[in-house]
Amino acid sequence: MHETWADARLLEAVADGDRRALEVLYGRHAPWLVTRLTRRCADPTVVDESVQDTFVAVWRTARKWHGRGEVAAWIWGIGIRRLLDQLRRRPLTVPPAYEQVVVSAEEQVLLGIEYGELGPALNSLSPELRAVVQATVLDGLTTREAGRLLGIPTGTVKTRMMRAKALLREELA
């Protein structure tokens, strides 16, 4: 029965303490959440802990979802914050086997996002602008896909991206 429910209805049931509804939400959303978080963190233990923390937070805070936007976007917001919390608690260590290895361009960019000047610049953006940058640039979604995920029109995604680029240029100049 729960399997046919829309995400919004499942989340309402979770808010009322329905564990089966949480199981269905987990089954629908955990796989893509793992994939997206893995793009930002190569440590599967950290990713798994972040996903578990995400769904504990969904269980505890389901009443805070106000019905605006997609449930998936709300879960993503929790998930990325849980990943960042996990990463902040762990010291940055480079295994000896990788000290002399040439790092790919993508890895350099991701390390720059987390530990370089870009991280604080991204954090200076409003949550709305940061979400668009993360969805389109870091996750590689099209503007249409980002709009669907974030629950906003495609034109709004484009406008927010233009604004975010301008603010990032100022911040990094």
Rank of each mutant, 00 (worst) to 15 (best):
P120L: 08
L10N: 01
I75V: 15
R169C: 10
A73C: 05
R39S: 13
W74T: 07
Q134E: 15
R39G: 15
M1H: 11
V157I: 05
L111K: 00
E23I: 00
P96N: 04
E99T: 09
V94A: 06
R90H: 08
P153K: 09
S104C: 06
V133R: 02
V157Y: 07
L110E: 07
M161D: 02
R40P: 01
T61C: 11
A6K: 13
R40N: 04
T156R: 14
V51E: 01
I78L: 15
S126E: 11
R169S: 10
P120K: 03
V157M: 08
R20Q: 14
G69D: 06
W59Q: 09
L129D: 15
L10C: 12
A21G: 09
L87Q: 14
V103C: 12
P120W: 04
E70Y: 01
S50P: 02
R19N: 10
L87K: 07
A72R: 12
V94K: 06
L22A: 10
T45D: 15
V132K: 06
R63Y: 02
V133G: 06
R169P: 02
P91R: 09
V132N: 05
R169E: 07
V157T: 01
E99I: 08
L138F: 11
L138D: 12
T142V: 07
L25H: 03
L150C: 10
V137Y: 02
L125Y: 13
R60C: 05
V51Q: 11
L149C: 06
W32Q: 14
L150M: 13
V14Y: 09
P91F: 09
D7P: 06
R39P: 00
R160E: 03
V132F: 11
A6R: 08
Q86N: 10
A135P: 01
G112K: 08
Y26W: 13
A30L: 02
D53V: 02
G112P: 05
Q108W: 01
Q134R: 08
W59H: 10
E106T: 14
T93N: 03
H66K: 15
A97I: 04
P31N: 10
L125T: 13
T156W: 02
L87P: 13
A8T: 05
V102C: 03
E12L: 07
R160A: 01
L25P: 09
I78V: 14
W32G: 08
V58L: 06
A57G: 05
R163V: 14
T93H: 13
L150A: 09
A15L: 09
H66G: 07
K158T: 15
A105P: 03
R9D: 11
E99N: 03
R20S: 12
G77E: 11
A97K: 05
M161P: 01
P153G: 13
T142P: 10
C41L: 00
R28Y: 07
V58F: 06
T143I: 00
L37K: 08
Q100I: 07
L122H: 05
E171T: 11
R9G: 00
